[in-house]
């Protein structure tokens, strides 16, 4: 997994609440057995005017000029700004895979759906929850070509005017993201504890063993 330390990135404002995982990556693309290559189909139904299908070459598809990611001032954006409950719906990790493959490294919203939030951390993507009013102010600023500096270690966002915004993140998630660590490897360091748990549990619930 790609580590996340500092990010100086362009912000794309997606002014919608309850952006669901079906919108982020529609179901037909979930048929892939690969982990990469979802970026061209990110927000497929909003981004293109035609109907996308898996393995389609997107370079000549008609673009929806009104959609934020198609606007010239947001090309190369690495930070996505959105409204409440971003990533609601299914558990598909294809949603963070598509965001990451497209080039996003961080998402800022007032709130996130739990499974999506969790999935982001497995893919080097930083979801930042900020108060509704703070996000509303960022939307005002992000009208064109606005950049933010995100410092994960300091848990701080710096705006172009020098204003600092602090954000919260669990210690464990932060540590793993900062170092790009593999969760499984870390958990297997507790292999003895897992085995001991199984031995004790087998006494209480032998039908599970």
């Amino acid at each position: 997994m790609q580590a996340f330390t500092l990010l100086d990135g362009l912000v794309a404002p997606l002014d919608r609440a309850n952006v669901d995982t079906d919108a982020i990556i529609p179901k037909q693309f979930l048929k892939s057995i690969r982990r990469a290559g979802f970026g061209p189909y990110l927000f497929d139904e909003w981004r293109y005017l035609d109907h996308g299908e898996p393995e389609m070459d997107c370079t000549h598809r008609p673009l929806n000029a009104d959609f934020v990611l198609n606007k010239p001032q947001y090309q190369g954006a690495q930070i996505l700004l959105a409204r409440e409950n971003f990533g609601c719906g299914s558990s598909r990790e294809h949603a963070p895979w598509a965001l990451e493959d497209f080039g996003f490294r961080a998402i800022i919203a007032p709130s996130f759906a739990d499974i999506f939030y969790n999935n982001c951390f497995k893919n080097g993507l930083l979801p930042i929850a900020l108060p509704v009013a703070t996000v509303a102010a960022l939307f005002q600023e992000a009208a064109d070509g606005y950049r933010l500096l995100i410092d994960l270690d300091a848990q701080q966002i710096t705006t172009p005017s020098g204003q600092s915004i602090a954000f919260e993140i669990d210690g464990n998630r932060k540590y793993r993201l900062l170092n790009g660590l593999d969760d499984i490897g870390l958990s297997l360091q507790h292999a003895e504890a897992i085995a001991a748990y199984e031995t004790a549990r087998a006494q209480r619930a032998p039908w599970l063993f």
Partner: peptide, 8 residues
């Protein structure tokens, strides 16, 4: 019981 992503 809860849903998980593919990494999980």
């Amino acid at each position: 019981a809860f849903g998980i992503g593919t990494s999980e």
